[in-house]
Design a protein around this nucleic acid. Structure first.
Lengths: 292, 292
DNA sequence: TCAAATCTGGAAGAAATATTCCAGACTTCG
DNA sequence: CGAAGTCTGGAATATTTCTTCCAGATTTGA
């Protein structure tokens, strides 16, 4: 090919390259360039035939266009557009990088432990971004309402979900809610919710692979007609399906380990949101620092 | 096909249909359903072969899945996912979210609870960023060495630090480390470390205002000559000054509440870094999923 | 326990999509 | 005006990707 310029590595780079070289392009190629800039979505996920029809250029012209910018073919260029579509949806463009982490599973500690930390930071940041999108406007509010209506909130979560559950139990307690933490000490988790009533609520946290204890608790509560607020990773998880309200957290996988940052973040928002609403309803001012 | 239910016309409809019919699906089809719900991006724009690899089902199974929901084939279903990808992206807009970040920095709670979540997301993300800078290259490695050298690791942390401590205890245990979680049940925390030896190690997590139990434990361990790994928020905190190794976490304050995301993230990096090094030293291959 | 029904994975075939090629049209410049 | 160089569109080809099919495995029910 005529060009020896570096192949764009990101959608942003490609955009810039298109703008810069726009003038030097031939008529048809300019047409395509315009379309690429104006309708990146088309470019990202339509077939060549469709793009061709919409832009008024031939498929072959699109391939030529791609090659002009150093790609091996049109498919190659489309990948870039697609990546940007996903990553802009999820976060800052880290998307692809994080995904590759999974791909290079076996790369292991060649880059040292510090790199591992960085990976977790990236993964967690990504999960946080998606959290804001996943949890809709009213979801959190309704979840808080459920807690507010309960006489006593039973909080359960084991294994990986235990930290989240323990934080929630602690925070809600601090916020002045009658809270019972089902910590499963001495294997008594079943006993601890034995006397749960329909006026109470169960706050269950569980991620795949779902701890059987939690599932059982949820099933028992559901059977008893107790409202259930679930924090889980899939709408079809055993506990989500039985829940009254569901807060969905999609954690990122880093080297096949899921992060927890987003879950904790959500838990905080839940607990502190509860505290605010609670106190706002009771009296205008309240102690802010109580949960510190 | 067996189904005469109306074909989903939007991604939302499809999601709902998947959730509703999840139970009646076969095992493989449930696997795919789960993947569709959890990784819609993959489904939207990856090729069947890729989705197949990531979800663990065969391409043909994906086609079957699609037909179960009334589509003529997998491509037909993918179109729906793609459409939603575009529209959700367009609805948000690139700069829109970024603009909101700044706008609501100081925004009071007039924007409701959803804004609160966003604040926590932002705060946590910031904390994560600074984490990568605060924790230096060798810090994590040396911390891991300390754990590795210990016969038994005692993990302690109360109040706000409890979730972090419990996660660490759980993960290290999973990684094959002899771990004792000082959970303070029945106020016995002092007893639980009574027999700690110099060949053990104490992993203490504490943030201001430092829980007296933790401080006491650290003081006792220090007096006994036991190596101490501290996770704390200041180099001059009571537990940091007595520690052998220190991992510093600066959490962001959101509305006078400190986030926990960075701490959890660090804890994960520590635990999983330990797992990697441990297993790398012991034997070449190991079970990766043990901590999932 | 066995038989019927259903589900699964792989391979062969079908369809779609992308790429190459080239004759003819267009532009540029002497 | 004419030749050299470049660009274009469409058809032929190559490749990727999807779908169908079916024998064997698994599950279900009696």
């Amino acid at each position: 090919m005529k060009t020896s310029v570096p192949v764009p590595k990101t959608a942003a780079e490609l955009r810039q390259a298109i703008v810069e070289r726009y003038d030097s392009l031939s008529k048809r190629l300019q047409l395509i360039a315009r379309h690429a800039l104006d309708h990146p979505d088309d470019f990202a996920l339509q077939t060549l035939a469709v793009i061709s029809a919409r832009s008024g250029a031939q498929p072959s012209a699109i391939v030529r266009f791609s090659k002009t910018f150093g790609f091996s073919g049109a498919s190659d260029m489309q990948r870039l557009f697609r990546d940007s579509l996903v990553s802009s949806n999820a976060a800052l463009g880290y998307g692809e990088r994080v995904r590759r982490f999974g791909a290079q599973l076996q790369g292991s500690r060649s880059h040292g432990v510090a790199a591992l930390l960085q990976e977790f930071v990236d993964g967690s940041a990504l999960a946080l971004q998606s959290l804001a999108q996943t949890v809709g406007e009213g979801d959190l509010e309704r979840a808080i309402e459920l807690l507010k209506a309960a006489d006593t909130v039973f909080v359960a979560g084991f294994r990986r979900a235990f930290p989240v559950a323990s934080y929630l139990a602690y925070s809600l307690q601090q916020a002045g809610k009658r809270t019972s933490f089902v910590d499963g000490v001495a294997g008594l988790s079943a006993h601890q919710v034995k006397n749960i009533r329909t006026t109470d609520a169960l706050l269950a946290v569980s991620y795949r692979p779902y701890a059987p204890e939690t599932v059982q608790l949820v099933e028992a509560a559901a059977a008893a007609g107790t409202p259930i607020l679930a924090i889980s990773d899939s709408p079809v998880s055993p506990i989500a399906r039985l829940s009254t309200r569901l807060l969905l957290v999609r954690e990122m996988e880093v080297r096949s380990f899921r992060s927890l940052a987003a879950s904790l973040c959500l838990a905080q928002a839940l607990a502190i949101g509860f505290a605010f609403i609670q106190s706002a309803g009771a009296h205008g001012s309240r102690r802010r620092g109580s949960l510190k």
